[in-house]
Structure formats: structure tokens, C-alpha cells
Design a protein around this nucleic acid. Structure first.
Lengths: 217, 217
DNA sequence: AAATAAAATTAGTCTTGACTAATTTTATTT
DNA sequence: AAATAAAATTAGTCAAGACTAATTTTATTT
């Protein structure tokens, strides 16, 4: 099995894959807040364990085994988030760090039992798809609120930014996964968005805000 | 906060307290499967942190703070055991090792939320009392099946031995916390016990077995 | 009380996973 | 293409927490 550190690197590389760019030691270092020299050490270690392949040209890539292991870590993380929110009544912005610890608990059947206990949820509280036991992923949303046309009605499907600052802002605006939003108008000057949340009075939010909300139309 | 290792030492010392004997470095080393030299190192560390006091004459003792911290670790361990057994359908003999990892998850409100979610249980699945949030302990049972007189009826309150070998034997005998047992007879030769489980046909168990079951009369 | 055994302690080593500083390699400018 | 900047790598260090081997202290026997 893997150490805590190895698992965190795997998860980090897994996340960086989504960006579609070459995964460099520097990118990993920035993402984890580590020194690039430390990353180079770990790249060697994970390469020896056949979890990643590193090529100067192509950057770091997960092997089939690495992809599988990383997917299961993400599965555990997201399942625990559901548990914390639904069963222990934590708030949106409190669960990430705890799940960050829980995801490393090692037991062959724990994730599957938790999955069953939670009723096989497809998405975590941030709207991110929970990988199935076999590694399959439910559909992931990619359209942001900033992408839709003025006048359009949509449903909040997921958050792209999971920082506490953003989540707390959402709580303040009374926006949750599933909340209905209508985009009234885009302000040409700075791409601010005038929106109506659940049919209520209009509010203006920034472009950055719009790009952080994934929506379903 | 404490490291994983520090917490494991605290818990170990807490457990050794129950034996009523002087807690020596060797005793801790044996209990944890560590080298006595390593234990001496950690004794220094925990002493510096004011969690224990070490005196050659009196051995290792928890300070008020150490006692408090250790109690909370035990609280977390036992609450997670209840969760694993009741909510995730694990068996008696599978939960200890997983709870051993879960107990170290650090979050100020996690234990209390879990406690509430589980309905404020007083005993864990092995019958051990779960410390309350304020450190108070429900009554602990001390009479073993080997202590009662022939003819007596009693109820299984807790297990004193939590090894997988013992727990699996209990499963085979269909004995659980709460099971009713009548002690039919003690065999003078080797102190074996003839018992009837839930009023069923008589079976003979060893003295060692009897000493491992805590009962309520 | 001396001899022996056991326990405790010290000193030094190892591994993991981080770090800094220095160097080499690769990319980007001018 | 040469100069410069950025990225990657190497070499060496550090702390935690384990270890072994050697030594000292304490207990137990004879």
C-alpha cells in the first residue's frame, strides 16, 4: 500500500490531469505547496512503484495502476464528504479538510460499505462526480454560469472552486447544488453577471464568480 | 496537537493504567511492540509536552492534560467502532483496526457530531464504556463469567479480550453483548465451565474463556 | 554482600519526506 | 546565436520516530 504522502501526490497528479496541460514537477510543487526538489524525489519513488511515468517531453503521467489507485482515493474523499454533510450536519465549507484525512483510511471494503450506507450517491456535496467502485465516473459538468447566454435559465450542478471564501459566499447568497439561476444580463464592461437566484430579486456577481459555478441547463 | 505516534503512546499508557501496576518503559514497549529505547525517547517527548510525568519509583503517569487527551482518543475509537458495526455492518472482529486509524482524525466537533448521530451510545460493541464529551465514563463491568457461582444466570456485558481469535470463537458460539448465559457447573479439575447459552444445550468452555467475558448479573 | 540478571538509558544509525543551495538543463528573449 | 531566465536536478541537511549495540542502573539470587 501507499504512504500518506504518496497518496497525496497521486491525487494531486490526478487533479492536474483535468487541466489538459503537461504535468511538470513545478506544477506539482505549486499545487502541493512543496519544493520542486521534493517533488523530483517523489517522482522517482512513484516511478519505481510503477504508479507514474515521467518523460521530460510529456511530463508526468499516471500509469494504469496509478490512475486506478488515484481514482479510489478520490472516491473515498467524495464519499466521506457526503457522509460529513448529510449525516453529521457539517456545512459545505467545513468538510474538505476532514475528508482529506478520512480518505487515507485503509480498508478493503470501507469505501463500498460507506457507498452503500449513503445510498450510492453519484455526486459529492460540491457537485463533483463520485467514481464508482469499478472506476467508472458519472458525467461531469463543464459549462459555467459565465458561458451561458443572457436570459437563460439553469441549475447549479457543481462548484469549480472549493475554497472556503467562495463556499461561504455561496451560503450567503443562498446558493446550493440544485439552486435555479436565471442569467438576466452580462455587463459588457467587465463581464459582470446580473442574475436572479430562485426567482428572487436581481443581484450582480463578478465574472470570476460566474466561472466558478458549473451549471446544468 | 499531537502526532500519530504521540497519540498511540498516550492511549497505550491510558490502557496500562487499568492494570493498576507501575507503568515502566518495558511495559509500554511490550504493549506497543516497540523497542524500549524508542519508548525512552518518547517518554522524554511527552514529558516535555506535560502530558505525562515519569519517576523511576512511580513509573509513568498521565498528567491531568494527558489523561484528558487520552480519554478523548479512546472516546473517538469507541464511537467509530459503534459506527462501523451498526452503520456499515462490519463484524465484531473487523472493527478494531479500522477504528485505530479513524480515532486519529482531527476535528474539534467530529466526535460530538458522531456521538449525536449514533444516538449517544454508552458502550462500544465490545461492551467498553464510551467516555462522554466531558470525560465522564459510564460504569465499567468487572465480574467475569469465571467469578460467578454455579447455577447463576447472567448477561454478557463486555469482552475483556478483543483478539480476533476470541471474538471469532464468540461468533461461533453465538454469543453477543446482551446474550444470557447460565453457569451450570464448574469442573474442579481444571476450572472448566459448563454453560448454557440462551437456554440452549450445555457446552463446556475453558477457565481462560470464562475470565475473558465480563458479565452483568 | 557479591554475582548475576533484568531494566533503563545513551549513543549512534536508518528511513521518510521535507528543506536549501548549487548546478545543470531547457526555454525564451534580444 | 548568444544571453538570459526559468525549470529541473543534484547534493547535502534536518526532524521524527523507529532501530541496534553498548553501557549504566536497579533488582534479584545465591
Amino acid at each position: 500500500m501507499h504512504t500518506l504522502s504518496e497518496e497525496n501526490y497521486l491525487k494531486c497528479i490526478y487533479r492536474l490531469q483535468d487541466k489538459g496541460q503537461k504535468i511538470t514537477p513545478t506544477a506539482i510543487a505549486e499545487s502541493l505547496g512543496n519544493n520542486p526538489a521534493s517533488v523530483v524525489d517523489m517522482i522517482r519513488k512513484l516511478t519505481d512503484k510503477l504508479l507514474i511515468a515521467y518523460d521530460k517531453k510529456k511530463g508526468v503521467e499516471l500509469t494504469a495502476q496509478g490512475q486506478k489507485d488515484a481514482t479510489l482515493i478520490v472516491r473515498r474523499h467524495r464519499l466521506w464528504e457526503v457522509f460529513l454533510l448529510e449525516k453529521l450536519d457539517y456545512h459545505w465549507d467545513e468538510i474538505h479538510d476532514i475528508a482529506e484525512e478520512l480518505e487515507h483510511i485503509k480498508d478493503a471494503t470501507l469505501a463500498d460499505r460507506l457507498d452503500k450506507f449513503l445510498g450510492f450517491p453519484e455526486y459529492d456535496p460540491h457537485g463533483d462526480p463520485i467514481p464508482k467502485a469499478n472506476g467508472k465516473m458519472p458525467k461531469r459538468y463543464s459549462t459555467t454560469l459565465a458561458d451561458v447566454k443572457a436570459g437563460a435559465h439553469c441549475r447549479v450542478a457543481a462548484v469549480k472552486d472549493t475554497t472556503s471564501a467562495f463556499l461561504q459566499y455561496l451560503i450567503k447568497l443562498n446558493i446550493n447544488i440544485g439552486t435555479k439561476i436565471q442569467l438576466i444580463e452580462k455587463i459588457p464592461f467587465d463581464s459582470s453577471l446580473v442574475i436572479s437566484i430562485d426567482g428572487n430579486e436581481q443581484k450582480t456577481v463578478s465574472q470570476k464568480f460566474g466561472e466558478s459555478l458549473l451549471i446544468d441547463m
